Computed example of a mutant assay.
Amino acid sequence: MKRLGDRKRHYWLAQRMAQTTGTDLTGAYDAGDLSQQQWAEIVEACRGCDWTESCERWLARHETAKEAPAGCTNCGAYMEIRQAVSEGG
């Protein structure tokens, strides 16, 4: 079984990726488009990702992006959150 990465490190990586892709996790949570469970699942998925080092390099090179790179385990989650927010829930 793969050892999960540090929770705090991956919390911030998930936050940085969300910010870079224009995914407002806090806003989505406040609007009811993201549950506490879903937010926790995003962090846990990040903790289990094999792409962490590449993620950090990617984030260092991008201030903004239309979407997360394909290697990101939360690429689809961020897209769904942005869609839900844009549709008003």
Rank of each mutant, 00 (worst) to 15 (best):
R82E: 01
L25E: 01
E56C: 10
V43E: 01
W51Q: 10
K8G: 06
S35C: 08
E44T: 11
E80F: 10
T23Y: 03
M1R: 07
Y29Q: 09
G5R: 14
Q19V: 14
T26S: 13
I42E: 03
N74P: 00
G22V: 09
P69Y: 06
G88S: 06
Q37W: 05
A45Q: 06
Q37D: 09
S86T: 15
R61H: 15
W51C: 11
G71K: 02
H10W: 09
A45I: 02
Q37I: 11
Q37F: 03
A28N: 06
A40V: 05
M79A: 14
R57W: 12
A40Q: 10
G48I: 00
S86E: 13
A60E: 14
G32W: 02
A60H: 14
T23A: 12
D6T: 12
T52S: 08
V43N: 00
I81H: 02
V43K: 07
E41S: 14
R16V: 03
H10T: 07
G71H: 01
Q38T: 12
H10Y: 11
R61W: 14
A31E: 10
D50N: 13
R9A: 12
A28C: 06
I81G: 01
D33A: 15
E56A: 11
A45G: 02
Q15T: 12
L4I: 02
R61P: 08
